[in-house]
Amino acid sequence: MTQIRIERCSGKALERYIPELARLRIEVFREFPYLYDGTYEYEEKYLQTYLNCEQSVIVLALDGDSVVGASTAIPMQFETEEMQKPFLDHGYVLEEVFYCSESVLNKNYRGLGIGVRFFEEREAHAAELGGFRHITFCCVERPVDHPRRPADYVPLDKFWNKRGYFKHAELHTSYLWKDLDDDEETAKPMTFWLKDER
């Protein structure tokens, strides 16, 4: 394994990485808890949101020229209604919320501190943009007895707490996608975690 490089890119600079990012997202999100049966066409369309927003950021983990990990973030004002609604319902100002959408990392590169860097780089980007009082992300809620839950699965709650994020059960939404083994999309419950900026 060569030295891993961590790079940030925003807006149109992302375009060259779209194929690798789509492939990586499909690969990683097949794992529990997302169990996402994704398609390249959907991923390419989804990533256009970040391509079209100059205030977005994608943090890349590169091994040579290969993308082995990526972490996305965008001001909440540019996100979908499903993501915005819980914050509007609870009196948050969207322009003051920075949304760390997802992180994906090839399993061969986990445990090397890359996940920590993903948070650090996204938070640094939010600080450079300025004006944010809250940084957030959300995760899917799966039952503890889910049939596809691996016996050795460890939730990331402690990792997120250590980064300063705490679960806010009052901030929740749902998102549609097709699970592995399913024939159609179903709504998945999603709960937000929040870190207040000082």
Rank of each mutant, 00 (worst) to 15 (best):
E102T: 15
L105A: 11
N106K: 14
K107E: 10
K107W: 08
N108W: 10
Y109A: 05
Y109K: 08
R110M: 07
R110N: 08
G111K: 13
L112C: 04
L112V: 04
G113V: 08
G115F: 10
G115S: 12
V116L: 15
F118Q: 01
E120L: 12
E121D: 05
E121F: 03
E121T: 08
R122Y: 07
R122C: 04
R122N: 11
R122M: 09
E123F: 13
E123C: 14
E123H: 14
E123M: 15
E123N: 15
A124E: 07
A124W: 05
H125G: 10
A126G: 12
L129W: 11
L129I: 14
L129S: 09
G130M: 06
G130C: 03
G130K: 10
G130T: 04
G131M: 14
G131C: 14
G131N: 12
G131L: 13
R133C: 12
R133M: 08
H134I: 02
I135Y: 00
I135G: 00
T136Q: 02
T136G: 02
F137N: 00
F137E: 03
C138V: 02
C139D: 14
C139G: 14
V140G: 00
V140E: 03
R142N: 07
P143Q: 12
P143C: 10
P143R: 13
P143L: 13
P143S: 11
P143E: 10
P143F: 13
V144K: 14
V144F: 13
D145V: 00
P147M: 01
R148C: 02
R149W: 00
R149G: 01
R149T: 00
P150C: 03
A151N: 06
A151G: 05
A151Q: 06
Y153K: 06
Y153D: 05
Y153G: 04
Y153I: 09
V154L: 08
P155S: 15
P155T: 08
L156I: 13
L156S: 10
D157G: 04
F159P: 02
W160H: 09
K162A: 12
K162P: 02
R163V: 04
R163G: 01
G164C: 12
Y165Q: 02
F166S: 09
K167L: 15
K167A: 07
A169S: 15
E170G: 07
E170I: 11
L171E: 05
H172Y: 03
T173A: 03
T173Q: 00
S174L: 00
S174K: 10
Y175W: 14
L176I: 03
W177F: 06
